[in-house]
């Protein structure tokens, strides 16, 4: 019983995987596994890796969708103005970094708590996008010459997700900076009195993590050949969900790499599996939510010692 609270997430994952594979023969087909690991999975993985870094530092980032949108906007707008693809990608990443830099100034410079700072950024980002697109009109890139860059980005998706995982693994697990930010996340006051620059470090994390969300924004807009305003927000709540589901995998309920990967897997597999098993379209969300809620109930409910309320 003691282990249940920690292994609720991987156990549920295994049970669901087996159940879906038994009920629906096509679940394990090459096509389905490929679409599972390439489509929803990679985008959510990129965003969730960014979120994991921030949460491990003791913050939260509500503006991940905004950074995605900004990079997608810069990327697509550059392409539609005839700039070369490589420059468009760079400009996309710069736009995302600008969002991260703005957060960093608010958090490290003005010392606003991360929740509020990124909430403010999210709202300002809404307005910027609405104003830049004349009230929210998408930018389509269908007409004109074929754009091989979209195909290249699609092909690179699994590698980009692996890159994100490797980057976060190295930063959190094998770097001095990682040791510092984890310490700051666990006990900010102790870290500060030990001479660590807590605010500066979380500012750096906000900045660095937007590189990953920026890549996600470019991948998203490349896959739909367009930019539609505020589309990144769909990933915000899932990324928070995956990261915090992942905390159930840690002794002390901290954000951690493996946990987040399992969380992303769970969210993606449930979405994909329910579709294949033939749960009515309208009921899918209810079942999806119930499964996630059950994992949480098992993980938290069996550990009476948790910090709780």
């Amino acid at each position: 019983m003691k282990a249940v609270h920690r292994y609720g997430l991987p156990l549920t994952l295994a049970v669901l995987f087996a159940a879906f594979a038994t009920i629906s023969p096509s679940f394990l087909s090459e096509n389905n596994l490929r679409s599972l690991f390439v489509n929803h999975f990679t985008l959510l993985m990129l965003v969730s890796m960014a979120m994991t870094l921030v949460v491990a530092t003791g913050g939260i980032d509500l503006s991940v969708g905004t950074a995605m949108d900004m990079s997608g906007f810069a990327f697509i707008a550059s392409l539609s103005n005839g700039l070369p693809p490589s420059l468009a990608i760079v400009l996309g990443l710069v736009a995302a970094l600008a969002v991260g830099g703005f957060n960093a100034i608010l958090i490290a410079g003005i010392r606003i708590p991360t929740f509020l700072a990124t909430l403010g950024t999210l709202f300002i980002g809404h307005s910027i996008q609405q104003l830049a697109t004349g009230g929210g009109v998408p930018i389509y890139l269908i007409a004109g010459a074929p754009r091989p860059i979209f195909g290249d980005i699609e092909a690179a998706r699994p590698w980009l997700a692996l890159f994100a995982i490797a980057a976060v693994a190295i930063v959190l697990g094998f770097s001095l900076f990682g040791r510092k930010i984890v310490a700051e996340g666990i006990a900010p006051a102790v870290a500060r009195y030990s001479g660590l620059l807590v605010r500066r470090d979380i500012g750096l994390v906000m900045l660095g993590s937007t590189l990953l969300t920026g890549i996600a924004g470019i991948v998203l807009s490349a896959s739909v050949h367009s930019y539609s305003p505020l589309s990144g927000n769909a990933y915000l709540m899932d990324a928070i969900g995956a990261t915090f589901l992942g905390t159930t995998f840690h002794h002390h309920r901290r954000a951690n790499l493996v946990g987040t990967i399992l969380g992303v897997l769970l969210l993606s597999i449930v979405k994909n599996g329910l579709l294949l098993v033939g749960v009515s379209f309208y009921w899918q969300q209810v079942v999806n939510g119930t499964l996630i809620f059950t994992v949480l109930a098992i993980s938290f409910g069996t550990n009476r010692k948790s910090l709780g309320v």
Partner: peptide
């Protein structure tokens, strides 16, 4: 409006 609310809270 969203932007003004955001700036206001910050």
């Amino acid at each position: 409006i969203d932007g003004v609310e955001g700036v206001l809270i910050l």
